[in-house]
Structure formats: structure tokens, C-alpha cells
Amino acid sequence: MPLPSPLSASLAANPVAKLREALAQTHGISSCSLPFGIGLMDKRLATGGVDGAGLHEFAAASSSLNDDAAATLFLAGIAARFAANTGQTVCWAMTTFDLYAPGLEQVGLGPEKLLYAQGRKDVDVLAIAEDALRDGSLACVIAEVKTADMTATRRLQLAASDGQTPLLLYRRHRARERCPLSSPSSAMTRWRIGCMPSERLPWPGVGRAHWQVELVRQRNGDPFSLELEACDAKGRLALPAASGDRAAAPRRTDARNSAISRAA
């Protein structure tokens, strides 16, 4: 009669956790992940944050330029926090240059931390990103592409884990209705970001922006969707205050009542 192996014995005790552990060992998942600092989010992410040696895909929720800007700021904020952790440079590779650097500086990605690389085609951008990842002297690499197939993302994922550098792959919209995240990919996480109305202020100004942050897919975890407040000057996100703690929105009836009471 064969003796039960230690693996099968431990499997019997807590099968799922043990299997995950074994998987993590074989895949060489590093522990250097960057938490968002929001408990609700970090708890649901399998690695407790953005994995520091993996491929992450981002896309705008719709093909409108506003969602595009929101997604850009979201990944710029993550890159800024990676750069602030290690004090290194971020490489941003793209084909068409329409970024506005003063705006990026306002989420913590200053010009001294940012190196731009412009390729002629998506293939060039992917090659530049792979070079940058394998070099390993960067805090983070951002690549903006319209197309990246399964082979390309697999290569990038391997390069990221070789160079221990995270890659934030921004998939821009090609067509109006088709979401770029619908094609298969070997990314660790896939995110979809959209604009939400900001909270109304008691005066006629624009408040802190709100985003719909949707984790479409992640390895070893479940998708989720959250409404978050946009990046601050250091790239940190925040949860909106619970509705009970919010400042009261200006109400016309209140103003009228107070005016009447003052007049009276």
C-alpha cells in the first residue's frame, strides 16, 4: 500500500491555500507588490496590490477622450508611486504624443522621473518596452498601444518577471464600440477606468474627480468594481467619503428659507 505523500497530506488539510502557495512558488511571483493604501481594494487583489514584476493592462471605459484621460491619470498615478518608492525613472513609450507633461506632474510624475520614447508603430513600442523591462534599471514602464496579441503580452509578461519591473500596458481604443480588453492576454490584472461625476461642492467649482475603477480580470482573484476619488499630487487614490459624512450639498430650498428667515 503506497504511503500518502506529504503534498497530498497537506492538500487534505487546506487544499486551496496550499495549492496557491505551490503555484506562487512555481510562477516565481514576487512579494514586491505596491498596495493602493485602500483596504477595500488591496484586500481583493490577489497580490495585495499592483504586482511589481508583472504585466498590467488598462483601458478606458469608453472611447471618449475623457475616459481616456482618466485611465491615463490612473496609471500615471501608479507609476508615480512606483517611482517614489525606488527613486528611479519611469519610461513612457507611445506612438502618438499627446500627453501634457504639466498635467502628469500634478499626479506626482515629475519631468525628472519620466523618460519618453516614441516609436513609429505599435511593434516598435512593444520592442522598446521589452528592452526597458529587461534592463531592470527603471521603476516602471508604461506602453501605449492599440494592438497587442497573446504572444506579445506573453513576451512582455516574461520580460517583466525577468527584469523585476512592472509594465503598465495602456490599450487605447481602436473602434468606438469594441473594448480593447475583449481580446485575450496574459496580463496579471486588467483594469477599466471611466469618469464619474464629481461630488458637488457648496460653491460653483469643480470638486475632486471621481472614477469608476473596474478590475475586469485578475489572476488568482475575482473581479470587482469601485468608485474612487482621483489621484492626488502624489498619485494616491482615495475612497469617497460615505454619504453620511459628506458635506451637505447646496439646496435651493435651504437658501430660500434662510433668506426668508433673514428677511423676517
Binding site: 525613472t89 507633461a101 523618460l115 519618453y116 520614447a117 516614441q118 516609436g119 522598446i128 528592452d131 534592463d135
Partner: peptide
């Protein structure tokens, strides 16, 4: 960064790499 900059310049060309 210099080795990486050289490598990427070799791949993408002199003008492709810049800071703002």
C-alpha cells in the same frame, strides 16, 4: 540610465528618446 538609453536609441533612433 545611460546603457538603456543607448540601447533604446539604437532600436528607435536618436529623436525617439527625450525628456520634457
Amino acid at each position: 540610465l545611460a546603457p538603456l538609453v543607448d540601447q533604446m536609441t539604437a532600436r528607435a533612433g536618436e529623436a525617439a528618446l527625450f525628456r520634457l
